[in-house]
Design a protein around this nucleic acid. Structure first.
Length: 412
DNA sequence: GATCTCCATAAGATGGGACT
DNA sequence: AGTCCCATCTTATGGAGATC
């Protein structure tokens, strides 16, 4: 890609992209006029990038109250083209190397990133020394990674898990969106209700990979459906068997997927219609937010909380398994915040003995916790993971005892 | 041989006073 | 207010001997 030359080009041109390479720079005549006029109004020509960043940033900032002055944003979008291009290239390359499922071209990544330019401008703080290029690079990369991650999350969530997380309202909307009418939707909804009742009545916990129900469950679901269709449906619908209920539920999941997370299509892709235009010609103005992404974020938060609770429970149990003297030392040191010298006096031993016991006890807890992490969370242990686990343990001991004056029970 | 205890001491953290 | 120096406190650890 040819670098832009001169201050006017830097703030008035836009990148032209093929699927995965930059072709050149297109000049925007209106922006060019705007730059030339502004230059002319200054006592002497200004060639500093920082001056113009600051100038157009202020314009953009004011335009939030006065949209008539929205030129500032367009000049900044032009300026950020290169940064956006490099971020898109980096992310697109990584996605291509990894097993990321979204087949996005560089051009797609660029388009997705540049759409987030408002995030760059809103977070940018010129008065505290931010550099717009660096800041833009970080924000574009993070946003792109987030988009790809969300897409990946959707795809690793099984149909059965997706159906379990769904609300009744959302299912009906999805089926309507997929073109199903009032003749079929009640049957789909009823079979979905039977599925929830018989297969996954508990609230979902951590896993996104809820497996497919077994044959016996399918049978039970179809029996329940056949029983209830006479009372629950206004027109009692067709008799179903294991195969049809599974087929219907897969149809529901498909409808939900396409409703909640429409598949990304390259903006430059040709449409199937006869006039062979590009999709961008008919692109709707409004971007549909991914509701599913939100659901997954909530789930992840719950997972982290659950994990913290599990770690805490494990450490409490591990401490109870220590001998009385070790428990006492831990308690006096972390809970009562005595020095090793004071503990030594209390327990009639030497300071160095307390020190050695304390570090040995912590080693014991560390080994137990690390082993448990390895087994229950499938984390492979290396020195940095051990350091991390050690920090978690130390923080837990400090926080736990400072917030709980938990008297440690005698060994039983 | 592994573990514990003891002693001496190193290393780091903290606090107070003098000085600019 | 910030910095430097020094004394003191706290904790960790190497090495030697005792014990299991």
């Amino acid at each position: 890609m040819r670098s832009r030359q001169g201050i006017i080009e830097l703030f008035t041109t836009f990148l032209e992209l093929d699927a995965d390479r930059a072709i050149g720079w297109a000049i925007d005549a209106r922006l060019r006029r705007s730059m030339v006029n502004c230059q002319a109004s200054l006592p002497q020509p200004e060639t500093s990038e920082n001056f113009w960043i600051s100038y157009w940033y202020k314009q953009w900032h004011n335009s939030v109250q006065n949209p008539a002055q929205s030129l500032g944003k367009q000049h900044l979008v032009s300026y950020l083209q290169e940064v956006c291009y490099w971020s898109a290239q980096k992310v697109a390359q990584k996605a291509a190397q990894g097993n990321s499922s979204g087949q996005y071209s560089l051009s797609d990544c660029f388009q997705m990133a540049i759409m987030r330019v408002d995030k760059v401008l809103k977070g940018f703080k010129p008065d505290v020394g931010f550099n717009l290029k660096n800041y833009g690079s970080v924000v574009f990369s993070c946003e792109l990674k987030e988009i790809l991650r969300s897409q990946n999350e959707i795809e690793i969530c099984t149909n059965w898990r997706l159906l379990r997380k769904l609300s009744h309202k959302r299912l009906v909307e999805s089926l309507q969106n997929a073109g199903y009418g009032a003749d079929m939707i009640p049957s789909y909804v009823l079979v979905w209700r039977c599925y929830i009742e018989l297969y996954a009545p508990e609230q979902p916990t951590g896993t996104r990979r809820l497996p497919k129900p077994d044959e016996a469950t399918w049978k039970a679901i179809s029996q329940l459906y056949n029983l209830e269709r006479h009372t629950q449906l206004s027109v009692s619908g067709k008799e179903s068997n294991s195969e049809t209920v599974e087929k219907w539920l897969v149809t529901c999941a498909k409808a939900v997927r396409s409703y909640l997370y429409p598949s990304m299509t390259s903006i430059n892709a040709a449409t199937n219609s006869d006039n062979a235009g590009e999709l961008q010609d008919i692109l709707p103005q409004l971007q549909q937010e991914s509701i599913l992404t939100e659901m997954i974020a909530v789930e992840e938060k719950n997972e982290r909380q659950l994990q913290r609770q599990q770690i805490s429970d494990f450490i409490v149990t591990a401490i109870k398994e220590l001998d009385n003297e070790a428990q006492k030392i831990i308690q006096l040191y972390y809970s009562q915040e005595l020095t090793q010298q004071q503990i030594a006096k209390e327990l009639e031993m030497k300071q160095y003995t307390v020190s050695r016991r304390l570090s040995k006890t912590k080693d014991t807890l560390l080994i137990k916790l690390a082993t448990w992490c390895q087994e229950s969370m499938h984390i492979s242990l290396n020195s940095s993971v051990l350091d991390y686990v050690s920090t978690i343990l130390e923080e837990w001991l400090q926080n736990h005892y400072s917030s709980n004056s938990m008297p440690l029970g005698e060994n039983s």
